[in-house]
Amino acid sequence: MEIVVCVKPVPEAETRLRVATDGTALDPEAVKFVLTGYDESAVEQALLLKESVPGSKVHAISYGPAPRTEEVLRAAIALGCDQATWIDSGAAPATDPVDVARALAAAIRPVPHDLVLLGKQAGDDEEGVVAAALGELLEVPDFGFVVDLRWDAAGSRFKFRRASEAGLESWEAPTPLVVGLQQAWNDPRTAKLPAILKSRKAPIAKVTAAARSAEAARSRSVKFELPAPRTGAKLIEFKTPQEAAEKLVKVLREEAKVFP
Protein backbone atom coordinates (compact mmCIF):
# COMPACT_ATOMS: atom_id res chain seq x y z
CA MET A 1 0.00 0.00 0.00
CA GLU A 2 1.25 3.45 -0.88
CA ILE A 3 0.60 5.73 2.07
CA VAL A 4 1.13 9.47 2.02
CA VAL A 5 1.23 11.19 5.39
CA CYS A 6 1.08 14.98 5.50
CA VAL A 7 2.76 16.65 8.46
CA LYS A 8 3.15 20.26 9.54
CA PRO A 9 5.79 22.00 11.64
CA VAL A 10 3.98 23.43 14.65
CA PRO A 11 5.31 25.32 17.69
CA GLU A 12 6.01 23.10 20.68
CA ALA A 13 3.11 22.88 23.10
CA GLU A 14 5.02 24.71 25.85
CA THR A 15 5.86 27.63 23.57
CA ARG A 16 5.41 30.99 25.19
CA LEU A 17 3.33 32.88 22.65
CA ARG A 18 4.40 36.35 21.58
CA VAL A 19 2.88 38.60 18.94
CA ALA A 20 5.07 39.55 15.98
CA THR A 21 5.80 43.26 15.52
CA ASP A 22 3.24 43.67 12.72
CA GLY A 23 0.57 42.34 15.08
CA THR A 24 -0.84 39.78 12.65
CA ALA A 25 0.98 36.59 13.55
CA LEU A 26 2.88 34.64 16.15
CA ASP A 27 6.41 35.90 16.59
CA PRO A 28 8.46 32.93 15.36
CA GLU A 29 11.61 34.18 17.11
CA ALA A 30 12.95 31.49 19.46
CA VAL A 31 9.99 29.22 18.71
CA LYS A 32 10.82 25.58 18.28
CA PHE A 33 8.78 23.91 15.55
CA VAL A 34 8.13 20.22 15.96
CA LEU A 35 6.02 17.33 14.81
CA THR A 36 3.07 17.47 17.19
CA GLY A 37 0.13 15.54 18.57
CA TYR A 38 -2.28 15.01 15.71
CA ASP A 39 0.49 14.60 13.17
CA GLU A 40 2.31 12.14 15.40
CA SER A 41 -0.88 10.11 15.53
CA ALA A 42 -1.13 10.23 11.74
CA VAL A 43 2.47 9.07 11.32
CA GLU A 44 1.87 6.32 13.87
CA GLN A 45 -1.23 5.20 11.97
CA ALA A 46 0.72 5.17 8.72
CA LEU A 47 3.45 3.04 10.29
CA LEU A 48 0.95 0.62 11.85
CA LEU A 49 -0.63 0.11 8.43
CA LYS A 50 2.77 -0.30 6.82
CA GLU A 51 3.62 -2.97 9.37
CA SER A 52 0.35 -4.81 8.83
CA VAL A 53 0.23 -4.68 5.03
CA PRO A 54 3.32 -6.25 3.44
CA GLY A 55 5.05 -4.22 0.77
CA SER A 56 3.71 -0.89 2.00
CA LYS A 57 5.59 2.38 1.84
CA VAL A 58 5.07 5.59 3.76
CA HIS A 59 5.82 8.90 2.08
CA ALA A 60 5.87 11.97 4.34
CA ILE A 61 5.03 15.30 2.71
CA SER A 62 5.19 18.71 4.30
CA TYR A 63 4.55 22.24 3.10
CA GLY A 64 6.39 25.15 4.70
CA PRO A 65 9.53 27.24 4.95
CA ALA A 66 13.12 26.24 5.75
CA PRO A 67 14.44 24.96 8.06
CA ARG A 68 11.51 23.86 10.19
CA THR A 69 9.75 21.89 7.46
CA GLU A 70 12.79 19.81 6.72
CA GLU A 71 13.17 19.16 10.46
CA VAL A 72 9.67 17.69 10.86
CA LEU A 73 10.26 15.53 7.81
CA ARG A 74 13.47 14.23 9.39
CA ALA A 75 11.48 13.50 12.53
CA ALA A 76 8.98 11.54 10.39
CA ILE A 77 11.81 9.60 8.77
CA ALA A 78 13.32 8.84 12.18
CA LEU A 79 9.97 7.38 13.18
CA GLY A 80 10.00 5.08 10.16
CA CYS A 81 8.70 6.88 7.06
CA ASP A 82 10.44 5.67 3.92
CA GLN A 83 10.49 8.79 1.85
CA ALA A 84 10.00 12.52 2.29
CA THR A 85 9.05 15.48 0.13
CA TRP A 86 9.41 19.06 1.21
CA ILE A 87 7.20 21.56 -0.58
CA ASP A 88 9.15 24.77 -0.16
CA SER A 89 6.73 27.57 0.56
CA GLY A 90 9.36 30.27 0.58
CA ALA A 91 9.66 32.59 3.55
CA ALA A 92 5.96 33.55 3.62
CA PRO A 93 3.93 30.34 3.63
CA ALA A 94 0.25 30.39 2.74
CA THR A 95 -1.96 30.59 5.81
CA ASP A 96 -5.32 29.91 4.20
CA PRO A 97 -5.82 26.19 4.69
CA VAL A 98 -7.24 25.61 1.20
CA ASP A 99 -4.11 27.18 -0.31
CA VAL A 100 -2.08 24.73 1.75
CA ALA A 101 -4.28 21.88 0.53
CA ARG A 102 -3.71 22.98 -3.09
CA ALA A 103 0.05 22.89 -2.58
CA LEU A 104 -0.17 19.45 -1.00
CA ALA A 105 -2.52 18.16 -3.71
CA ALA A 106 -0.08 19.27 -6.41
CA ALA A 107 2.65 17.23 -4.76
CA ILE A 108 0.46 14.20 -4.06
CA ARG A 109 -1.21 13.89 -7.50
CA PRO A 110 1.92 12.64 -9.30
CA VAL A 111 2.93 10.13 -6.59
CA PRO A 112 1.16 6.86 -5.76
CA HIS A 113 -1.37 7.35 -2.97
CA ASP A 114 -3.77 4.64 -1.89
CA LEU A 115 -4.23 6.48 1.38
CA VAL A 116 -3.52 10.06 2.41
CA LEU A 117 -3.28 10.49 6.18
CA LEU A 118 -3.27 13.75 8.13
CA GLY A 119 -3.79 14.85 11.69
CA LYS A 120 -7.38 16.05 11.94
CA GLN A 121 -6.06 19.55 12.58
CA ALA A 122 -2.77 21.30 13.28
CA GLY A 123 -1.96 22.19 16.87
CA ASP A 124 -1.45 25.88 16.04
CA ASP A 125 -4.20 27.14 13.73
CA GLU A 126 -6.57 24.29 14.60
CA GLU A 127 -8.38 24.64 11.29
CA GLY A 128 -8.98 21.02 10.44
CA VAL A 129 -9.75 22.02 6.87
CA VAL A 130 -6.81 20.63 4.91
CA ALA A 131 -7.81 16.95 4.93
CA ALA A 132 -11.30 17.59 3.57
CA ALA A 133 -10.04 20.13 1.04
CA LEU A 134 -7.44 17.61 -0.13
CA GLY A 135 -10.17 15.03 -0.57
CA GLU A 136 -12.05 17.39 -2.85
CA LEU A 137 -8.95 18.47 -4.79
CA LEU A 138 -7.81 14.87 -5.31
CA GLU A 139 -11.40 13.75 -6.01
CA VAL A 140 -11.12 11.17 -3.28
CA PRO A 141 -13.53 10.57 -0.38
CA ASP A 142 -12.33 11.99 2.92
CA PHE A 143 -13.15 11.46 6.57
CA GLY A 144 -12.09 13.57 9.53
CA PHE A 145 -12.15 12.65 13.23
CA VAL A 146 -11.13 9.07 12.47
CA VAL A 147 -10.16 7.21 15.62
CA ASP A 148 -8.88 3.93 14.24
CA LEU A 149 -8.16 2.59 10.82
CA ARG A 150 -7.48 -0.95 9.69
CA TRP A 151 -6.95 -2.55 6.32
CA ASP A 152 -9.19 -5.52 5.71
CA ALA A 153 -7.05 -7.47 3.27
CA ALA A 154 -9.75 -10.07 2.53
CA GLY A 155 -12.31 -7.42 1.60
CA SER A 156 -9.70 -5.08 0.05
CA ARG A 157 -11.05 -2.18 2.04
CA PHE A 158 -10.34 0.03 4.99
CA LYS A 159 -12.46 -0.34 8.09
CA PHE A 160 -12.49 2.61 10.39
CA ARG A 161 -14.43 4.43 13.02
CA ARG A 162 -15.09 8.14 13.08
CA ALA A 163 -16.14 10.23 16.07
CA SER A 164 -19.25 12.32 15.55
CA GLU A 165 -21.89 13.92 17.73
CA ALA A 166 -23.96 10.74 17.35
CA GLY A 167 -21.20 8.51 18.68
CA LEU A 168 -18.73 6.38 16.79
CA GLU A 169 -19.64 5.77 13.15
CA SER A 170 -18.24 2.63 11.54
CA TRP A 171 -17.25 2.94 7.90
CA GLU A 172 -15.84 0.76 5.16
CA ALA A 173 -14.07 2.20 2.17
CA PRO A 174 -11.82 1.00 -0.65
CA THR A 175 -8.74 2.90 -1.77
CA PRO A 176 -8.14 5.72 -2.48
CA LEU A 177 -9.04 7.56 0.71
CA VAL A 178 -8.11 10.71 2.63
CA VAL A 179 -8.25 10.45 6.41
CA GLY A 180 -7.91 13.13 9.12
CA LEU A 181 -6.91 11.41 12.31
CA GLN A 182 -8.09 12.15 15.81
CA GLN A 183 -5.26 12.37 18.31
CA ALA A 184 -4.49 10.09 21.20
CA TRP A 185 -6.28 6.91 20.30
CA ASN A 186 -2.98 5.37 19.35
CA ASP A 187 0.17 5.77 21.37
CA PRO A 188 2.69 7.32 19.00
CA ARG A 189 6.11 5.73 19.16
CA THR A 190 9.25 7.66 20.00
CA ALA A 191 12.06 7.66 17.48
CA LYS A 192 15.10 5.76 18.67
CA LEU A 193 18.51 7.31 18.85
CA PRO A 194 20.10 5.34 15.98
CA ALA A 195 17.11 6.16 13.76
CA ILE A 196 17.44 9.85 14.62
CA LEU A 197 21.10 9.79 13.60
CA LYS A 198 20.27 7.94 10.39
CA SER A 199 17.46 10.35 9.51
CA ARG A 200 19.95 13.22 9.42
CA LYS A 201 21.51 11.68 6.32
CA ALA A 202 18.28 10.64 4.58
CA PRO A 203 17.54 12.35 1.26
CA ILE A 204 14.58 14.73 1.22
CA ALA A 205 13.06 15.59 -2.14
CA LYS A 206 12.38 19.29 -2.52
CA VAL A 207 9.74 20.85 -4.74
CA THR A 208 8.83 24.49 -4.96
CA ALA A 209 5.24 25.43 -4.26
CA ALA A 210 3.41 26.78 -7.29
CA ALA A 211 2.03 30.31 -7.26
CA ARG A 212 -1.26 30.57 -5.42
CA SER A 213 -4.43 30.15 -7.42
CA ALA A 214 -5.55 33.48 -8.92
CA GLU A 215 -9.29 32.76 -9.00
CA ALA A 216 -9.59 31.52 -5.43
CA ALA A 217 -10.69 33.63 -2.50
CA ARG A 218 -8.61 33.33 0.65
CA SER A 219 -8.30 34.85 4.06
CA ARG A 220 -5.31 36.50 5.64
CA SER A 221 -4.58 37.32 9.23
CA VAL A 222 -5.03 40.97 10.14
CA LYS A 223 -4.62 40.62 13.88
CA PHE A 224 -3.08 38.10 16.27
CA GLU A 225 -3.91 38.73 19.90
CA LEU A 226 -3.12 37.18 23.22
CA PRO A 227 -5.88 37.27 25.79
CA ALA A 228 -5.42 39.72 28.63
CA PRO A 229 -3.71 37.66 31.29
CA ARG A 230 -6.30 36.14 33.56
CA THR A 231 -5.82 37.87 36.84
CA GLY A 232 -6.54 34.75 38.81
CA ALA A 233 -9.69 33.47 40.40
CA LYS A 234 -11.87 35.59 42.57
CA LEU A 235 -11.71 33.52 45.72
CA ILE A 236 -14.98 33.09 47.53
CA GLU A 237 -14.61 33.37 51.29
CA PHE A 238 -16.67 31.01 53.39
CA LYS A 239 -16.90 29.40 56.80
CA THR A 240 -19.05 26.39 56.06
CA PRO A 241 -19.51 24.28 52.94
CA GLN A 242 -23.13 25.44 52.79
CA GLU A 243 -22.03 29.04 52.73
CA ALA A 244 -19.55 28.25 49.96
CA ALA A 245 -22.28 26.63 47.89
CA GLU A 246 -24.76 29.44 48.40
CA LYS A 247 -22.26 32.17 47.57
CA LEU A 248 -21.02 30.39 44.45
CA VAL A 249 -24.51 29.79 43.07
CA LYS A 250 -25.34 33.44 43.74
CA VAL A 251 -22.35 34.82 41.81
CA LEU A 252 -22.88 32.38 38.97
CA ARG A 253 -26.47 33.56 38.65
CA GLU A 254 -26.14 37.26 39.30
CA GLU A 255 -22.61 38.17 38.25
CA ALA A 256 -21.50 35.60 35.68
CA LYS A 257 -25.05 34.92 34.47
CA VAL A 258 -24.29 31.36 33.49
CA PHE A 259 -26.59 29.57 35.84
CA PRO A 260 -29.55 27.96 34.10
Binding site: P97, V98, A101, E126, V130, A131, G144
Partner: peptide, 23 residues
Amino acid sequence: GTTFGRDFTGRCAALWNAAAATG
Protein backbone atom coordinates in the same frame (compact mmCIF):
# COMPACT_ATOMS: atom_id res chain seq x y z
CA GLY B 1 -19.00 23.69 14.16
CA THR B 2 -19.80 20.01 14.53
CA THR B 3 -17.61 17.21 13.21
CA PHE B 4 -19.90 17.30 10.16
CA GLY B 5 -19.49 21.05 9.75
CA ARG B 6 -15.75 20.93 10.04
CA ASP B 7 -15.39 18.19 7.43
CA PHE B 8 -17.86 20.03 5.21
CA THR B 9 -15.90 23.29 5.31
CA GLY B 10 -12.73 22.05 3.64
CA ARG B 11 -14.50 20.20 0.86
CA CYS B 12 -16.95 22.96 0.11
CA ALA B 13 -14.28 25.67 0.10
CA ALA B 14 -12.02 23.66 -2.20
CA LEU B 15 -14.88 23.04 -4.62
CA TRP B 16 -16.12 26.63 -4.55
CA ASN B 17 -12.63 28.25 -4.51
CA ALA B 18 -13.55 30.00 -1.29
CA ALA B 19 -11.68 30.97 1.82
CA ALA B 20 -12.24 28.53 4.67
CA ALA B 21 -12.11 28.63 8.43
CA THR B 22 -13.44 26.70 11.40
CA GLY B 23 -13.93 27.52 15.06
